Simulated assay, not measured.
Amino acid sequence: MRAAVLEKFGAPLTVRHLADPVALGGEAVVEVLATCVLPYAAEVFGGGRNYPLEPPVVPGLGGVGRIVDIGPDATRLRPGDLVWCDATVRSRDDALTPDIALQGWSSRGEGGARLARHLHDGSFAERMRVPTENLYPLPAAAGDDPARWAGMAVHAVPYGGLLAGGLTAGETLLVSGATGNFGSSAVAVGLAMGAGRVVVPGRNRAALDLLTDRFGTRVRPVRLTGEQDVDHAAMIAAADGPVDLVIDLLPPSAPGTAVRAAAMTVREYGRVVLMGGVGMLGGEDLALPYPWLMRNSVTVRGQWMFPRTANVGLIALLTAGLLDLAPERVRSFPLDAANDAVRHAAAHGGPFQRTALLPSPTAQTAFEIPS
Rank of each mutant, 00 (worst) to 15 (best):
P327V: 05
T97L: 14
L335A: 00
V278M: 00
D86H: 11
M294W: 14
P221G: 14
A188M: 00
A337K: 03
L358C: 02
D145F: 11
V83H: 02
E133R: 15
P251W: 01
Y269Q: 15
G122H: 06
R301E: 12
P52F: 12
D73F: 04
P98K: 03
T362K: 09
C85G: 07
P79F: 09
A316F: 02
G216P: 04
A234G: 11
T365W: 02
Y159L: 15
T217Y: 08
V37G: 12
L357E: 11
E268D: 14
G313Y: 12
E133N: 12
H17S: 12
V130K: 11
A42K: 06
A178G: 08
G151W: 12
V57M: 00
G194R: 04
E268N: 06
L318M: 13
A337H: 14
L162M: 14
G279A: 10
D69F: 09
G283E: 11
L293G: 13
I315D: 01
Y40R: 07
F352N: 05
V273W: 10
D213V: 05
R331F: 03
N181K: 07
A338G: 05
V273C: 09
V312N: 09
L288H: 05
L211D: 05
W149L: 12
A346C: 09
A188F: 08
A237L: 13
N181H: 14
A150N: 06
L24V: 06
A341E: 10
Q228I: 15
G80D: 06
V89A: 10
L96K: 11
G196D: 15
L96W: 09
V259S: 14
I247M: 10
L138R: 04
V157E: 01
G256N: 11
H17R: 12
P12I: 02
T365Q: 13
R301A: 13
D69N: 07
G10E: 00
R214L: 13
G104N: 11
A23S: 13
D248R: 01
L293C: 10
V246D: 08
T212N: 05
R214C: 08
G226M: 13
V22A: 08
G71Q: 03
L250C: 10
V199A: 04
L323K: 03
R203A: 13
A347M: 08
G241M: 07
A188L: 02
